[in-house]
């Protein structure tokens, strides 16, 4: 089980802030493919990866990063702080 978190418009599009996902995905990209296959709202949220960022255990990562040992994955748009 892995905790998957969504923020900003990704959270709104998917319709929830956090869920637990049972997955054997090897990488972030594999996890995204699994989520996209679930329902249209996931497919819509993950349609354009260039508009998304990912963090693994609260550290920014790439989409080809391995998920082994990771407890928390977060998906969100590019950050707009400051």
């Amino acid at each position: 089980m892995i905790d998957v978190l969504y923020f900003a418009w990704v959270r709104e599009r998917i319709g929830l802030p956090k869920e637990q996902v049972e997955t054997s995905a090897a990488t972030v990209a594999d996890l995204i493919e699994e989520l996209k296959a679930r329902e249209e709202r996931y497919a819509a949220a993950f349609a354009d990866l260039s508009a998304l960022r990912v963090a693994l255990d609260q550290d920014l990562a790439e989409f080809d990063a391995p998920l082994a040992g990771v407890r928390e994955v977060a998906f969100f748009p590019p950050m707009t702080g400051g």
Binding site: L60, P77, P78, M79, T80, G81
Partner: peptide, 26 residues
């Protein structure tokens, strides 16, 4: 500090106007 926290710290701004809500784009 400003340059980095603008695009590396996980904050997202949403503007709410009479016309509706919009997430600020980076």
């Amino acid at each position: 500090l400003m340059d980095y926290l603008k695009s590396r710290a996980p904050f997202w701004k949403k503007e709410i106007t009479a016309q509706g809500e919009t997430w600020v784009e980076s």
